[in-house]
Amino acid sequence: MWKFLHPYAKAQRSYELAGTLLPWFAVLAVVSFVLGTAWGLAFAPADYQQGDSFRIIYIHVPSAIMSMGVYTSMAIAALIGLVWQIRLSDMAVAAMAPVGAVFTFIALFTGAAWGKPMWGAWWVWDARLTSELILLFLYLGVIALYNAFSDKALAGKAAGILTLVGWINVPIIHFSVEWWNTLHQGATITKFAKPSIAGPMLWPLLIMLLAFTCYFAAVMLIRFRNEILIRESHRPWVKQLLLKSA
């Protein structure tokens, strides 16, 4: 059933596939970023309570969703890397981690900038904010651990285990607003019910979500290709590639 995937365990094939996919994601990201930003910031109606300040949702929510989504992708890649011992999976984890860390930082920063005018505080140690901060530290831990070993096979294994174990935090972040009483409000769109946001405000949010996803895919593919070239630099195909482009 998974036979069609087998050729991609070879670094060269994966490198080429990443190169083919890259421009598509990049173009889609740019288009949806422009569309979503213009629609969300200029054309969506202002909120009945928060006025124009609510527009920060168009950055805050997609980056927060991505911070958890990227971590989950890393956990899946880490599991595959550890169980099937596919080196490319470890490279994918290393390629994704810094991107996810940036998303987490953006979510925390925009959240603080949103919280000050609306709640009246930059930061509150409630369960949602604290668990998201822990997610940032987990990302930094994975990045640090991967770079702490000069033997990259060992580094991939260590970072993979940390990634998998740390995944426990993702459902905690998601359900924190239900399990405990928090200052942060509950889920608006990531729930099995009708989104509690009016249609004209929802569409730009979904487009921004698509933009963030495609942006992540594009940046991840670039980093993944770099990681492959660095780790496979002794292989003849990489040398040939470099000679060709030089």
Binding site: Q50, I57, S196, I197
Partner: peptide, 10 residues
């Protein structure tokens, strides 16, 4: 501190 709900509407 003000707490707001998860509903957004015009």
């Amino acid at each position: 501190l003000a707490k707001h709900d998860e509903e957004y509407m015009p």
